[in-house]
């Protein structure tokens, strides 16, 4: 038993393996899409140069605006609406960001069968509930702020 506890458990190693691969894929996606963005290979929905510009009648550049003002200014869709703009250089970056955001969910799904096989019932419930929480957060159903 003591020897077992010195080593990482099967589910811990499985979680680490998926996390490792997913992290590298996410990182690669981020770098590639960002290069596409800044190089101008794909046109941006909000032009890059515009971000640091100060709009007329304002004291702050566009990226200094509050999020709701920025979104209103450029008519940026909320929630998963960015998917419709994935052909634009800036919103293509959201693919990598979403990949990193979804990685923990994938890891939980991967360890669930191991926990079930081990009849580790308490952790099966915990892992299943966590997947539900993360799905709720990612769904876009929840509305935040008073803007």
């Amino acid at each position: 038993m003591t020897e077992d506890r010195k080593k990482a458990s099967e589910e811990q190693l499985a979680y680490a393996a998926v996390l490792n691969k997913g992290m590298w894929i996410g990182l690669a996606l981020l770098i590639v899409t960002f290069i596409i963005y800044v190089s101008g290979i794909l046109p941006s929905y909000v032009p890059i140069q515009k971000l640091s510009e100060v709009p007329q009648g304002s004291m702050v550049p566009y990226w200094g605006m509050r999020a709701h003002e920025f979104n209103k200014e450029f008519n940026v869709p909320h929630g998963w609406g960015w998917l419709s703009l994935v052909n634009k250089g800036d919103y293509l970056n959201f693919v990598g960001i979403a990949m990193l955001g979804g990685l923990s969910m994938i890891c939980y799904v991967v360890i669930l069968p191991i926990l079930i096989r081990k009849k580790d019932n308490a952790y099966v419930v915990i892992a299943a509930l966590e997947v539900a929480v993360l799905l709720l957060a990612a769904s876009g159903i929840l509305k935040a702020g008073g803007h």
Partner: peptide, 10 residues
């Protein structure tokens, strides 16, 4: 992310 408070350039 869903509230549009994410800017790729940052």
């Amino acid at each position: 992310l869903n509230q549009g408070a994410v800017l790729p350039m940052i």
